[in-house]
Simulated scan of single mutants.
Amino acid sequence: MAERTGHRIFTLFAVPLLVVVPLGLALLLNRSFPGRTFFRAVYFAPYVLGVAVIGLLWRFLLDANLGLVNRIAGVLGLPADTPWVTSTPWAWVSLVGVTVWWTSGFNAVIYLAGLQDIPQELYEAAKVDGASTWERFRHVTLPGLRPVLLFVITTTVLASANVFGQSFLITQGAPGTETRTVVWFIVEEGLRDNDAGRAAAMSIVFALMLAVVSIANFRLFRYRED
């Protein structure tokens, strides 16, 4: 089923990026430099926009004929006719890229809060012991962020599994039904095909699957902490 495959493709690529990219941004924005508050606001700003605004905006920007993205690509000497929303793998690149751009700010703010809770004395002690930057990140930052990582990974997996608006508005399921997701399929069963019973049953099964994934994630992090 295309919906199931599409769901897995999106989650497989979106989740790692939405965990790693915001962490990198948070590490950069946690440093002291001029304009830090401004850049924090800039990175978080897209998240305050609704999915309808994001979807329609990027549907226009990624249009193969009139979109600004292909126009800029042409100016830079790159292919100017890339079918960003009508052909794979470009449709998936578009969906994942837009989602990462849109929601990275939220995860970055969560990471920033976690970074500021790590005692600076630990970093100073690590420096005294001769720990490198990577060693301080591995042995101080990551352990200190374990609860935050658990929250970010769990919520990101759940959000990616429930994606609907981006594919509905940006790619409109194209090509064919390749970029339709599980939630889209459930909505069609309940509303278009008027089969509320089957849609409800699928929703319950889907919710139970996500609950199992969340529990497994919590147990995994608890095991690592022990």
Rank of each mutant, 00 (worst) to 15 (best):
D81S: 14
Y47R: 07
D63V: 00
N162M: 06
P34T: 10
P34R: 14
L122R: 04
V140F: 06
T37L: 07
N70S: 07
V42M: 11
F39P: 05
P83V: 08
A126N: 14
L78H: 04
T155G: 00
Y47C: 04
F151H: 03
S132R: 09
G35K: 09
A73V: 00
F164A: 05
T141I: 10
V96R: 02
P83A: 06
L27A: 11
G24P: 02
G114L: 06
F38Q: 13
P89H: 10
T88N: 08
A125L: 09
A131E: 02
G165P: 04
V85W: 01
V75R: 13
P147A: 05
T141E: 10
P119R: 03
Y123P: 07
G130D: 06
G130P: 08
G24K: 09
E124R: 12
Y43R: 03
L49T: 11
I54N: 01
A41I: 08
G77I: 12
I153M: 11
S87A: 13
V75D: 10
R71Q: 13
L115T: 09
V109A: 14
D63I: 01
P46L: 10
F60Q: 10
P147G: 03
I72F: 14
K127A: 03
F33W: 12
G24L: 10
V152W: 00
V157E: 02
A80H: 11
A41F: 07
N107A: 04
L57A: 14
F39C: 12
R138D: 12
G77H: 11
G97S: 13
F106S: 02
I118E: 01
P79D: 08
V109N: 02
W102K: 04
L78W: 13
Y43S: 06
L122S: 03
V163P: 00
T99C: 11
A64Y: 01
E135C: 13
L62M: 15
Q166Y: 14
R138C: 04
A159W: 11
V152R: 01
L68A: 12
S32P: 04
A125H: 09
P119K: 01
W58V: 02
L142G: 00
L78Q: 10
L28H: 12
I110A: 05
G67C: 07
V48G: 01
R40Q: 14
P147N: 05
A41T: 13
V51Y: 05
R138W: 13
T154Q: 00
W101Q: 05
L95M: 13
E121P: 08
L78E: 04
G144A: 05
R40W: 03
P46M: 05
A131F: 03
Y43C: 10
L158I: 15
L62F: 15
D129L: 08
